[in-house]
Simulated assay, not measured.
Amino acid sequence: MACVRAGTVKRLIYTASVVSASPLKDDQSGFNDFMDETCWTPLNDSLAYLSLDDFHKTLAEKHVLRYGKNENGEGLEVVTLPCGLVGGDTLQSFTPGSVGVLISQVTHNENAFKSLEFLENLLGKIPIVHVDDVCEAHIFCIENDSISGRYFCASSYISSKDIEDHYALHYPEFNVKQGNVDVLKKDIKWSSTKLCDKGFVYKYDTKMILDDSINCARRVGHI
């Protein structure tokens, strides 16, 4: 509403959460076999493990998208960027919460690990992205001449077992916590290429995201 009242704002870029994009079927009977921008987290009482904040993330993103230009050209240019679990380094003097979730199998932080399991249960797997790529994606959406709508911002789509295996292989000095999510029943394909189709290029792959998250925690004395 502030953008509309200002009358000078051309484009609104809204940083959303991938929590709003579950591939769960509306009737909770299982998952769709793909995950892309058409997926929305079902908003019904059967998802008892969703918090009120999680519901609000979905409602807020849908509300923002309603302000996009209509067929008469009225409205704002609206872009929403549902971001995956953000890893990488930080300028802060402490480990950011999202990085804490990514390294929870190393730190054995139960609350953070529950968040990791929550994402996997909700989304089938865990979309992850490096903080530098998140920043670059926002700049890309500012500078692109023709972009609007919903664009996932995540470079990898992995399981908690994938994360566990990476840490166990590359960081044998840690006692890596083992998860118990049944990923075999969730063979969901990451089908989102919209942002890359527009010309955006991710600079960080899975290994780089996980390694930078470990390096971040080490630098601030978390591990």
Rank of each mutant, 00 (worst) to 15 (best):
D145C: 00
K57W: 11
S17K: 12
I223Y: 14
E110W: 08
Y151H: 15
D211N: 12
L24F: 13
D45R: 07
L24V: 00
S98G: 01
D27A: 07
H130M: 09
C83G: 02
L91N: 12
D54G: 11
G75H: 00
D187N: 15
S98H: 10
L50N: 11
R219K: 14
L50F: 09
I128A: 04
T107P: 08
D165Y: 05
T58V: 15
I139V: 15
S156I: 02
S191I: 01
V19D: 02
L122K: 01
D26L: 13
L52Q: 14
V220M: 10
V176C: 05
T107F: 11
L65Q: 14
V18C: 13
E71W: 07
L116M: 15
Y202I: 11
G87M: 11
E77A: 03
Y202H: 09
E77L: 07
H170Y: 15
I126E: 05
S159L: 09
D187F: 09
N180D: 15
D182L: 04
L116Q: 08
G124I: 14
G97Q: 09
L59C: 05
A112W: 08
G84D: 08
G124F: 06
G124R: 03
G97I: 03
A16C: 01
E37T: 02
W40D: 11
K10H: 02
T8P: 02
Q178F: 07
N215D: 12
V183T: 14
P96Q: 05
D165W: 04
P172H: 08
K186I: 00
G100R: 11
S93T: 14
C141L: 11
V131H: 08
S160V: 07
T95R: 10
D145V: 02
K198C: 13
D165I: 04
N109Y: 11
T58Y: 03
D205H: 12
S98M: 14
P42V: 04
L116K: 01
G100S: 06
L195G: 02
H222S: 12
V19Y: 02
P172F: 06
S159G: 11
P96S: 07
S155M: 05
K57C: 12
G100M: 06
D145H: 02
A137D: 00
A6R: 15
E120T: 11
I103N: 03
S93A: 13
G179S: 08
S17N: 12
A21F: 00
L102H: 04
L52F: 09
L119A: 04
E110N: 13
H222P: 01
N180W: 13
F113L: 06
S148N: 12
